[in-house]
Design a protein around this nucleic acid. Sequence first.
DNA 1: TATTTGAATGTAAACGTTTTCATTGCGTTG
DNA 2: CAACGCAATGAAAACGTTTACATTCAAATA
Lengths: 330, 330
Amino acid sequence: MATTIKELAKLANVSIATVSRALNDDKKVKASTKMLIQKLATETNYNPNLLARSFVTKKSNIIGLVMPDIFGEFFMEIIRGVDEVCYNNGYYTMVTSSHSNRSIVEAIVDYLGKGIVGGLILMTPLLEDDVRETLEKSKIPLVVISGKTSAKKWDSISIDNFGGAYSVVEYLIKKGHKKIAHITGPLKNNDSIQREAGYKQALKDYGIPLEKSWIIGGDFSINSGQSACEKLMTSNNRPEVIFASNDMMAIGCYVAARNLKLKIPVDFGVAGFDDIFVSQFLNPRLTSVHVPIFELGTNAAQILINKMNKKSDKVQTIKISTELVIGSSC
Amino acid sequence: MATTIKELAKLANVSIATVSRALNDDKKVKASTKMLIQKLATETNYNPNLLARSFVTKKSNIIGLVMPDIFGEFFMEIIRGVDEVCYNNGYYTMVTSSHSNRSIVEAIVDYLGKGIVGGLILMTPLLEDDVRETLEKSKIPLVVISGKTSAKKWDSISIDNFGGAYSVVEYLIKKGHKKIAHITGPLKNNDSIQREAGYKQALKDYGIPLEKSWIIGGDFSINSGQSACEKLMTSNNRPEVIFASNDMMAIGCYVAARNLKLKIPVDFGVAGFDDIFVSQFLNPRLTSVHVPIFELGTNAAQILINKMNKKSDKVQTIKISTELVIGSSC
DNA sequence: TATTTGAATGTAAACGTTTTCATTGCGTTG
DNA sequence: CAACGCAATGAAAACGTTTACATTCAAATA
């Protein structure tokens, strides 16, 4: 049986109130009694029952992390970032995903309603209306990791998708390419939308007309990248280089190249986005846009914890900048 | 303010006890009142306060998942597996790692002592004595994911490291190789130890003498794989093929090959273990041992939940079998 | 000396739920 | 008709902690 505050009180010959205060380092407690109690606490291996504490204070030091999926390197790094900061601040990390069969909303409601989490980090590619509504009702501190810095109502963190995409395309243009194709991500995904916008803007700024047949819709999966690439490279108007909206689809292009017996970068070039771990071991090394995902996680957690501690109450909007990583794939 | 059981009681004109019973589907409650209360509950958006419930029942439906690190595909898949089962059973997943600066023991004690988790999944490459001691004290249901099926005191799940390693080496031998080197994992890691044992046993069974200089110590990192490979391939007694204890180190061999201007599989062959996601996109595709990591996670969670529900109380020991994946790297 | 102050500590309520132990009322049995 | 049993419900304690409010006691002030 775990030691309770009552037993400590008996041992120290004081009331439970004093024990509670001593353990919470209340200034009102005499130094000597405080010392005594703290000594007893360590001796008896006392551990405060967090459930009881959270229950009475109505605050929880559990942070809920809701993601669209729990898969792959991207989400892993987010979790790692969040956990790192949580741990350093005495918080706990609870994760869940929408599990494909339920909506993000259900996942949030589940976390929020049961009084179990004291703060929420929501990662979502798109803030749809039902999600917004749900979030507005909640009184719990909240940080959104999103593809776009649009959510002015909540603290949010996002990647500079536009800038990153712009920089790859600009790089390609400066290398002399004019025939640049683009494989997009899912339609309703802000990351994807922003990247496509960056692509278009770069072309426009350098006076290169947009070739509509060179923009193919993908869904961030390897397969979609592969089929998009095959479509592009078997047409009679082939581009010189393909900018895929993420690395996974760029990998799909590698697969397509192998199938079509084409050589990268000789026959056509490929560039991606995310610079995931795999990319540096592809042959040739993939040119991509590096995203500091871990920092995305740490930042989100830090902001949230500050809010939970009432150390900050103004709404922050952080944009994480990206970095072009030049490989030999284009 | 969230609806409480009290308000429901007032609305339904019954006592809180009846409400509690109705919501928990107690047989003692008249069907009609049960219906009424459940109707009111949905109408008012009632959500039981899990903190209060856990507090009084001394049970928590939060499962703690403690891992040595939160990094890479392996741990991600574990988390995904655990979360999947937890979600389907109304449990919550809380993750943490030892954060390199604290020991596994501290991580466990932290989780166990505060009454916050109702069950624990511990993933550790080695069950050291201090960990064993700590676990023995705990009354909380527990499942260990380990490199070796040794922990007879607790339910445990492990990968068939020995069998997997044996099968690769056997495959290599049957392809006609006799000069087979091995890069091991960390010394105090059961996965690594078992894999090395499998390697040695296969050689022995096929009457191939062990060449000690062909066993190089690594630490599961890319770098260690690279330097081990360089050491092997620049010696004057070069092996024909290298069996790395995990895929990461096998990737290191690819890097080394590029540096040394050697061709895989022409100049030397490489095989790995784990069959991580990257491996299928390496050029040439890596021959490896596939480990169903996701299932490792789901199994662990399922066993744990069964125990928490008292549906099972005998100690189980599950060994997850592996599968040889033949690429063109050797 | 009588009163005030304030530091240190104690008392007890409160949080939302489960659960043990009554209590009620009604139908069945002797 | 009395006694009993049983189904349905209620009353209240309990869980461990925090905290508003009360109390004590000694030192400082009038």
